[in-house]
Design a protein around this nucleic acid. Structure first.
Lengths: 346, 346
DNA sequence: CTGAAAGCGCTTACAG
DNA sequence: CTGAAAGCGCTTACAG
């Protein structure tokens, strides 16, 4: 005999009472509850999750799906690990556990998610790196699994909830700042993939330019990998543009490091010969000289918001989150540096 | 009705046969199996994991426990995400899924693991960042959960299996190389925590020195955080040592970036005024000038080895891995750079 | 306040 | 080759 049965036998009470005591039900004699808790502690008894899940129909596990492509591995700045802290703080309030589900790079993310969902290993999902068209969203909607997208998408319409960084705000703020310093030829380094944020960012950049009466020049949109190597490549391509840009906006945090390298090689000094505005502030880019103008946000706070939004989409927890499951544009705060601190002669 | 019952009803056969067909048992008519598989595909049926787990006593899930402390988040180079690729390749052969279990920074890793183990959410565990004394090892041994340590420890004796990087080889090779170029004052930047690799590395460094007849000088062991900031700090402390070292060995990959920064500030050129040998080759450190002498390894291959070792410790899979569960020292290959490419005047 | 019993969705001996 | 039945470890109406 084992599990709850063994514990009940040892206490000489029924398994039902043990279960109720352990789960904090109110209709248990305080004396009995104390005995049960003490015995559970003594024997290290914790309810088998499969038994609970089967009976309750919930796993009490929340999944965070991440992609583990070679590019992510080599360049990721642990954005996701940073978010888990905030997520767990909130989930712990409801005794929910977080697991990270790494999708192998050689497996289709859609098929991977489908398997995880069908096996019912999680009660709810957070998906990241949303593509412009993302079948995972349709899948989750259809399967009626509560989920939140960390990133917008054209898929799913308003039948799904998302949180996304304020790419528009960043692009607008960067363009405004550069234009105010006299720049008119402003390049942008954008991702070469179909990830949705690329579209959002470039659109906002374009609109900001037009508001300043500057024509959009497709040549100034440099498509590269979201990595340091991509930043290096962006620097390379920038140097080959006929009518030289005087400024560049980066869409991914680690690009700045590679870009600086390429500029140094060409004898170009960021902040003097070329204005550079980076994306998210990143410990690893803090050592750059001249210091990089970029944008700050708290990964932990984002994680908290993400968890609260997710819980609001789950019927069992929605009551605790009366704000409901709203889409959120997550703001970033400008951190002025020296990399764009010069006015252009006009 | 739902699940396997519904599928069986639709096919007008018993649930037992459906189960056997789906699980590839041999005693099923091929015609029947085809019909079952087709229907499962059509309705997107996949067995509920809780039901399977409860019946079989296994979850078919392998856990990789990682720490998500602030330091890890800000500085990790995604070592773990890199390892997951190789892990999953092997686990997929046995239809085992990998989940990453991030231990919140405000929770004791021991308590976290205890909870996960007691709830039986995984069949086996991989633990990382092993401490010199690591109670998690005793816990897993006692609970009879198959596991492998990614890192050695003084705990557990030979009742646990581990894989660890060849810190001895790296330290020895680095010291030999530096001594050959005439260095005698060789500093080392080691972690300030109780992580086991710190002890292993410094011991090997000490022995290598003594083999060359060089006295071990505790002043040359600089204890800093395993991060870029730590590297910066190491540079700082190095500059304050009375009898200046002419070389430094780093124990963590990202330290090099911070160290270079501090050296540049002080007008010291790596590879000319000070020899630097880094640890693991890292995409982010590839841009350093002068190029860093460091050590190369494949995270994917390490993941494969880790998975095979783990499976060898699991009774249900041990037959497929006749090599058994052996402890492994994982080799790294020297990648010569310019950062130590000068001989010392003597 | 407690106990006895049903049943969550599967897999697997067992019988035929 | 297939079906009927047991039972994995829990939680939760229900009865008292």
């Amino acid at each position: 005999m084992k599990g709850i049965r063994q514990l009940a036998k040892h206490l000489d009470i029924s398994i039902g009472t043990v279960s109720r005591a352990l789960n904090g039900k109110s209709d248990v004699n305080e004396e009995t509850r104390k005995r049960v808790l003490a015995a559970a502690e003594e024997f290290g008894y914790v309810a088998n999750q499969s038994g609970r899940s089967l009976r309750q129909g919930t796993t009490n596990v929340i999944g965070l799906m991440i992609e583990s492509s070679k590019e992510t591995v080599e360049n990721s700045d642990n954005f996701f690990l940073g978010v888990t802290g905030g997520l767990q703080t909130v989930l712990a309030r409801h005794n929910l556990d977080l697991v990270m589900l790494p999708c192998p790079s050689d497996e289709d993310p859609y098929e991977y998610l489908k398997r995880m969902v069908a096996r019912r290993v999680v009660d709810a999902m957070i998906i990241s790196a949303t593509q412009r068209i993302d079948r995972r969203i349709d899948l989750l909607v259809k399967a009626k699994i509560p989920f939140v997208g960390l990133g917008r998408s054209s898929s799913g319409g308003d039948s799904y909830t998302w949180i996304d960084l304020d790419f528009e705000g960043v692009a607008t703020s960067a363009v405004d700042r550069l234009v105010a310093k006299g720049h008119r030829r402003i390049a942008i380094a954008a991702p070469s993939t179909d990830i949705n944020l690329g579209y959002v960012f470039v659109d906002a950049y374009r609109q900001a330019l037009e508001r300043h009466g500057i024509d959009y020049d497709p040549e100034l949109v440099i498509r590269v990998k979201s990595s340091e190597q991509g930043g290096y490549q962006a620097g390379h391509e920038l140097l080959m543009i006929q009518e030289k840009p005087t400024a560049i906006i980066l869409i991914y945090e680690l690009m700045a490091i590679g870009l600086y390298r390429r500029l140094v090689e060409a004898g170009i000094v960021p902040g003097r010969d070329l204005a550079v505005i980076g994306f998210r502030e990143e410990p690893r880019a803090k050592f750059l000289q001249p210091t990089l103008t970029c944008f700050r946000m708290s990964l932990r706070d984002l994680g908290v918001e993400l968890a609260e939004t997710l819980l609001a989409t789950m019927p069992a927890y929605a009551d605790s989150y009366p704000k409901g499951a709203r889409n959120t544009i997550w703001p970033l705060e400008l951190v002025p540096g020296e990399s764009d601190a010069f006015a252009l002669d006009s």
